Simulated assay, not measured.
Amino acid sequence: MAHSHLPKHGVLRLFLVLVGVCLVEYTVGPTLFLCWRLKGVSSSSSSTIQDSCTPCDCFCSSEDTVPQLSDCGRNDPDMKKEMKKDRLTVLSEEIALHDIVVRDTMEHTKGLIMDTRKSSYLYQKEAEKCNVGIKTCEEARERAEAELIEERKITTLWENRARQQGWEVDQ
Rank of each mutant, 00 (worst) to 15 (best):
I49A: 00
D115G: 15
R152S: 05
K129A: 13
L34F: 13
F59L: 13
E126D: 14
T54G: 06
S120R: 04
R141L: 13
K153F: 04
F59A: 06
V41N: 00
K135I: 01
Y123D: 11
V101C: 11
K125F: 06
I134Y: 05
E150T: 05
R103W: 02
M83K: 05
T48V: 09
L34Y: 12
R117D: 08
P67H: 00
R143N: 10
E142D: 14
Q50K: 11
G111L: 08
R143P: 01
D104E: 15
K129H: 09
S47W: 13
K110R: 15
T89F: 02
L32Y: 11
D71N: 03
C35Q: 14
G111W: 10
M114N: 13
K135W: 05
V102P: 05
V24N: 07
G111P: 02
E94Y: 03
E128N: 12
A96N: 10
T27H: 15
S52Y: 09
T116A: 10
K118V: 05
M83Y: 07
I100Q: 08
L88G: 13
Q68D: 10
E150F: 04
L148I: 10
C137P: 02
D78F: 01
E145H: 04
C60R: 11
C60I: 14
D51Q: 12
W36M: 12
I113H: 05
C60K: 11
T48I: 13
L34V: 15
Q68G: 01
R87F: 09
A144G: 00
E107C: 02
H108Y: 08
V66Y: 07
V24P: 03
D86E: 00
